[in-house]
């Protein structure tokens, strides 16, 4: 049922996806890291989250272009404030979805 070429494809994709996920854990978790590197790693999560979210909010289309009119962006403001105020992950997800749904109905 499965072609051998397809099998090679998904195994190859699986390997090149898995190795970057596994290698730092294997390599770094048993080592004492230099101070500058731990300080750097300490800032990576906030940087990644921001780098994931901002382009989603401010750009759209293909090829991508700046777009300040997307509901994603305008819904993000109250959702962000809600998160700041409540610090509730579940609540933020529900409020964000609700607002986005309402924005879709209105626009």
């Amino acid at each position: 049922m499965i072609h051998s070429e397809y099998l090679i494809l998904v195994v190859g994709m699986g390997l090149v996806t898995y190795i970057p996920r596994w290698f730092p854990i294997f390599f770094l978790s048993r080592r004492q890291l230099p101070r500058w590197f731990s300080e750097w790693l300490d800032l990576i999560p906030v940087a990644i989250l921001s780098a994931l979210v901002f382009p989603e909010l401010f750009t759209g289309g293909n090829p991508r272009h700046l777009d300040f009119s997307q509901p994603q962006l305008w819904v993000a403001l109250p959702t962000f404030l809600f998160a700041l105020k409540t610090k509730s992950l579940g609540g933020t997800v529900v409020v964000g979805m609700l607002l986005f749904w309402m924005a879709g109905k209105l626009l």
Binding site: L49, L57, M97, W101
Partner: peptide, 22 residues
């Protein structure tokens, strides 16, 4: 497609996790 704003779940989650990181 787009039922109940479910497409926004991950963006909302990232926004809140970003708040936790600030």
């Amino acid at each position: 497609a787009g039922a109940f704003g479910i497409d926004y779940a991950l963006i909302a989650m990232f926004l809140c996790l970003l708040v936790f990181q600030l």
